[in-house]
Amino acid sequence: MKVAKDCVVRFEYTLHETGGEQLEATEKDAVAYLHGHNAMIPAIEAGLEGKEAGDLVNLSLPPEQAYGVRNEEAVERISVKHLQGAKRWKAGMPAVVQTEQGPRQVTVLKVGKFMATIDTNHPYAGKHLDFAIKVVEARDATEEELAHGHAHGAGGHQH
């Protein structure tokens, strides 16, 4: 089956900053998403459109097509009690903060006894990224997946 709207796509990938180190890679389970439902970076969806299981896709994305350009004003001071992911905080550590749009990954810039300064840019914002993707599976989404708006099962959302 070819990757198209309303299908579940499972893929493995490695991610490098262009000309630099590896940033991420799938380890055990392939990533799964519901194609055509804004569940994936649009440039990755476009690159996978029409592909089939076994296909290899290399994408080189500028910041505007990946995680955006850095916003140097995206720095806030918040109460340390709102940081999730560790008990003791140090500058440079990633944290999760609950927002009105759901959980958001941030980077701790400075931490005091009660307050922390955080950077709300995505950690890869401003980076030119190279994705090496292998399509593992493309299948029709179930009615439940379509109703929920996301993939279920291995690599997707677990209910």
Rank of each mutant, 00 (worst) to 15 (best):
M1S: 12
V3F: 15
V3R: 13
A4F: 06
A4N: 01
D6M: 03
C7H: 14
V8D: 01
V8N: 05
V9N: 06
F11Q: 01
Y13I: 00
L15C: 00
E17Q: 05
G20F: 02
E21S: 11
Q22R: 14
T26M: 04
E27Y: 03
E27S: 03
A30K: 02
A30T: 00
V31G: 05
Y33I: 07
G36W: 01
A39M: 05
A46Q: 07
A46N: 05
G47T: 08
E49S: 02
K51G: 06
S60Q: 10
S60G: 14
S60R: 15
Y67E: 10
V69P: 12
R70D: 02
E72L: 15
I78P: 12
S79Q: 12
K81N: 11
H82E: 02
Q84E: 08
G85S: 09
W89P: 11
K90N: 12
A91R: 08
G92Q: 13
M93L: 13
V96M: 15
V97T: 04
Q98S: 13
E100F: 15
Q101H: 09
G102Y: 05
P103Y: 04
P103H: 07
R104G: 01
Q105R: 11
L109T: 03
V111M: 09
F114C: 03
M115A: 04
M115P: 02
M115G: 00
A116V: 06
I118L: 07
I118R: 07
D119I: 07
H122N: 07
Y124D: 06
G126F: 01
G126Y: 07
K127G: 01
L129V: 10
F131L: 11
V135R: 10
A138E: 08
R139S: 08
R139C: 14
A141M: 11
A141F: 13
E143C: 08
E144T: 15
E145Q: 09
L146Q: 08
L146I: 14
H148N: 12
H148Y: 13
G155W: 04
Q158I: 09
H159M: 05
H159D: 07
